[in-house]
Write a protein that binds this DNA or RNA. Structure first.
Length: 572
DNA sequence: GCCGTTTTCGGCCCGACTGTTTTCAGTCG
């Protein structure tokens, strides 16, 4: 049975939910949640680690008890603790906790007093007016619960980073024009460059909070006002995106920015660190007793805690605080470090622009080289090239290079990795290319072993340069295929191949945790646009954001290398 | 359930908003 780190994380997450409903020790609940987070993001295979006799208690938040439970889950496929909870509580009740407005106390009350066990039963109880009569509930609460439950049934929606960026930019521009507003910044997961965001957190410095929250809730894209006070307000835009606004004073701006950037796990760890040195940290500043000793800037907050300023993309409580304490934070790759792009298409297949137009757009985007990597013949719907078609493009690129200045075009292909792991074009034509990008575009459903062997075999080709969008996931559309990425990364190191971090907003694949694993193995990562039009080079910034979340430095990224260095790497 | 420059026991982050129980519990971020 396939059992991944995410499966174990999900079990611990459900245990936390159910324990919460049982009103268990909140710190025990927190321990399970923390373990779920750590395991869910962990880049190596827990099964393998156990098989190798490695000590899991070295992982943060994992002690003897949880190690034993992980072992139990790996060996038996079950967790007795979770089975016990399932015996005591209705099977689907944890689901109710994920409805906004419902916490453990209310879920317990609804279950005990009304026998509500599912979201559907919750909706019925609300429509029948049975909830409002419960102690602690009222009409308004009942209505809000019904609305939230209906939204939940229609499924929670997260927005892709690039989509959220469009709404964020409009809202920020609007708020900057409001009288008395000095500064506006988007915090939250958006600032941390997460691949999707659930809502936007906007931070404002302004003299009079009332005027700002009033302007905020009357923004013309607002569909619904969820809350409105002097210092904070929440709305839902017509597109369904929730936006939270906080108004802060200048002396608290850094502390508030830090606080609302999160992540929650990072904040908790920071607070713990503050307490350890006799300080108190909140969104207004860092305090010794009643005296504020920092808070105007983020740097000041981190400094008094004995830490270097931590880039937002790292703030996930994955070791960044310890690194900041020791002065060992990575010098994260920046967009301007990228000198080239190794994955792009033209009109020859499914792109929208000519070779020359793509070249000039890449140069305008500050790049020194661009590999054209059309689809291969197997991808018929994209008009994939056969050997003859590719040969014509090779000639065309060579001719174009003679006329271009400031940009060098590289000859490439995005060749399909067929089901048996062979490549979709013969060696003879691949040998004429600078860059061979291998990609899986079919049979996403292969079992883990076969999918893994398929990719490993493709990497055996001496022409293979890098693996495109390594997990195949498409946000909101397709889950990653089942592949042992640890083995892929190890083989990439042995074969001298690279992995792509596809910067397209719907992919952002390689995932951040695998970026870390690649870095640890010394496998270079190429941040590629997969551009299909001249506008798509802008997407590189999202790829860089993801790379930064994966702790990558410029030296870890293949296409930060100057052309000559890259060409030498490609030849060896 | 985890963890240790204050600890192998006793801690474990903090404030705003909402609705309702008129002094606060529940939820959220």
């Amino acid at each position: 049975m396939p059992l991944h780190n995410a499966d174990i994380a999900a079990i611990f997450g459900e245990i936390a939910d159910l324990l919460e409903i049982e009103d268990a020790n909140p710190f025990r609940i927190r321990a399970y949640r923390r373990a779920a987070q750590v395991l869910g993001e962990f880049g190596r295979d827990l099964r393998q680690m156990l098989a190798d006799g490695e000590d899991l208690t070295a992982l943060p938040g994992i002690g003897n008890d949880l190690t034993a439970k992980i072992r139990e889950i790996v060996v038996t496929g079950h967790c007795a603790q979770l089975d016990r909870l399932h015996g005591e509580l209705p099977p689907a009740i944890a689901e109710l906790l994920h409805i906004p407005g419902l916490g453990p106390k209310r879920v317990r009350a609804l279950w005990h007093d009304l026998d509500v066990q599912t979201t559907e039963q919750l909706c019925r109880a609300a429509r029948d007016g049975r909830i409002r009569v419960l102690p602690g509930f009222g009409e308004k609460t009942e209505r809000r619960i019904l609305e939230a439950a209906e939204v939940h049934l229609a499924r929670e929606r997260r927005f892709k980073l690039a989509t959220a960026a469009q709404y964020a930019e409009g809202m920020v521009a609007y708020l900057r024009r409001v009288e008395g507003v000095e500064r506006v910044e988007v915090a939250g997961s958006f600032r941390r460059m997460r691949e999707t965001v659930g809502d936007l957190d906007i931070l404002v410095i302004a003299a009079a909070g009332n005027a700002v929250t009033e302007a905020f809730v009357t923004y013309d894209e607002v569909r619904e006002v969820l809350a409105q006070g002097n210092t904070r307000a929440s709305v839902v835009l017509r597109c369904g995106l929730q936006v939270d606004l906080r108004v802060v004073a200048p002396e608290s701006y850094g502390a508030a920015l830090c606080y609302f950037t999160g992540s929650r796990a990072h904040n908790v760890a920071l607070r713990r660190g503050a307490i350890a040195v006799g300080l108190k940290l909140n969104e207004y500043g860092v305090f010794r007793g009643d005296q504020r000793i920092a808070g105007e800037t983020e740097e000041s907050v981190y400094r008094v805690l004995g830490l270097a300023w931590i880039p937002p993309e790292l703030r996930e409580d994955r070791g960044e605080i310890e690194a900041a304490r020791r002065g060992r934070l990575p010098h994260l790759v920046r967009r301007e470090d990228l000198r080239g792009d190794l994955h792009a298409h033209t009109r020859a297949t499914d792109g929208h622009n000519s070779l020359r137009e793509m070249a000039l757009a890449a140069r305008d985007a500050g790049l020194e080289y661009l590999a054209i990597t059309e689809h291969s013949r197997r991808l018929a719907m994209a008009h994939g090239l056969d050997a003859a078609g590719l040969a014509r493009q090779i000639d065309e690129i060579e001719r174009l290079n003679e006329t271009l200045t400031g940009i060098r075009m590289l000859k490439g292909i995005e060749v399909d990795i067929l089901e048996d792991g062979s490549l979709d074009l013969p060696d003879a034509i691949l040998a004429r290319l600078d860059v061979v990008v291998g990609a899986v575009h079919s049979r996403f459903d292969l079992p883990r072993t076969r999918q893994t062997e398929r990719i490993l075999r493709a990497m055996e080709s001496r022409h293979f340069t890098l693996l495109a969008h390594p997990t195949g996931r498409v946000l909101d559309e397709r889950d990653p295929y089942d592949v042992d990425m640890s083995r892929v990364i190890r083989r990439a190191r042995e074969r001298g191949c690279a992995l792509e971090l596809n910067a397209h907003p719907t992919r952002l694949d390689l995932l951040d945790t695998w970026c870390m694993a690649a870095r640890d193995e010394g496998v270079p990562v190429a941040i590629n646009s997969d551009a299909h039009s001249v506008r798509d080079f802008d997407n590189l910034r999202f790829g860089v954001g993801q790379a930064r979340r994966g702790w990558l430095e410029a030296k870890d990224v293949l296409n930060t290398r100057p052309l000559a260095v890259l060409l030498a790497w490609l030849k060896c």
